[in-house]
Amino acid sequence: MSTQHEEPGHGDSPAAWTAVVVMLIGVAAGTVFFFLHNPTMVWVSAGIVALGAILGWVLAKAGYGVNGPKYSPKTTD
């Protein structure tokens, strides 16, 4: 007996994916620049991580979050 219930979304939205990808790029770049002993670019990469978090929040407020009007969840059978 299986009961289906609605998932809360788990961040599977354009806003969440965009935020995570931008932050992942920032962390990867920061790691490389840390290895290359370039502190200025490490801080720029930290700024990119912060920008990714802000971008995700802005996109969620613009309606691209899990419960936003511009988000259409994928259905699985």
Rank of each mutant, 00 (worst) to 15 (best):
A53C: 06
P39H: 05
K61F: 00
W57Q: 12
G56K: 09
V44A: 15
V22H: 01
P69F: 11
P69R: 11
I48P: 04
M23E: 15
A60L: 00
G65S: 03
W43P: 03
T76D: 14
G9K: 03
P8H: 02
Q4V: 07
F33W: 12
L59G: 02
P73I: 08
L36P: 04
A19Y: 01
V32P: 08
H37A: 13
V21F: 11
A16S: 08
W57N: 15
S45T: 05
G65P: 05
K70C: 03
V32S: 01
A28I: 13
A15P: 00
F33Y: 12
K70N: 12
H10M: 07
T3K: 05
F35D: 07
A19V: 00
T40Q: 02
S13A: 10
G52P: 07
V58T: 04
A15Q: 05
F35A: 11
A16F: 09
A28M: 14
L51Y: 13
V21K: 10
G65Q: 12
P73Y: 06
T18M: 14
A15I: 11
P8V: 01
V20M: 12
G11H: 04
E6Q: 12
F35L: 14
A29D: 04
A19M: 08
A28R: 03
I48F: 05
D12E: 10
Y71R: 02
G63A: 05
K70D: 10
I25R: 04
G47E: 14
N67Q: 14
N67K: 13
V21W: 06
G9E: 02
N38G: 02
I54P: 04
A28K: 00
Q4C: 00
Y71F: 15
P69V: 09
P14L: 11
D77C: 06
P73M: 06
K74P: 00
S72G: 07
F34A: 15
W57G: 09
M41N: 09
T18V: 11
M23Q: 15
V42T: 15
Y71A: 06
M1D: 12
V49R: 03
A46L: 15
E6D: 08
W17D: 08
S2V: 06
H10W: 06
K74D: 08
M23H: 01
G47P: 14
V49P: 00
V58H: 10
A50G: 15
L55I: 08
G63H: 03
F33A: 07
G56F: 03
W43N: 12
E6F: 01
I25Y: 09
P14R: 02
G11A: 07
F33H: 10
E7D: 09
G9R: 05
A15E: 04
S72V: 14
A46S: 13
G30I: 14
A60M: 02
S2L: 11
T40W: 03
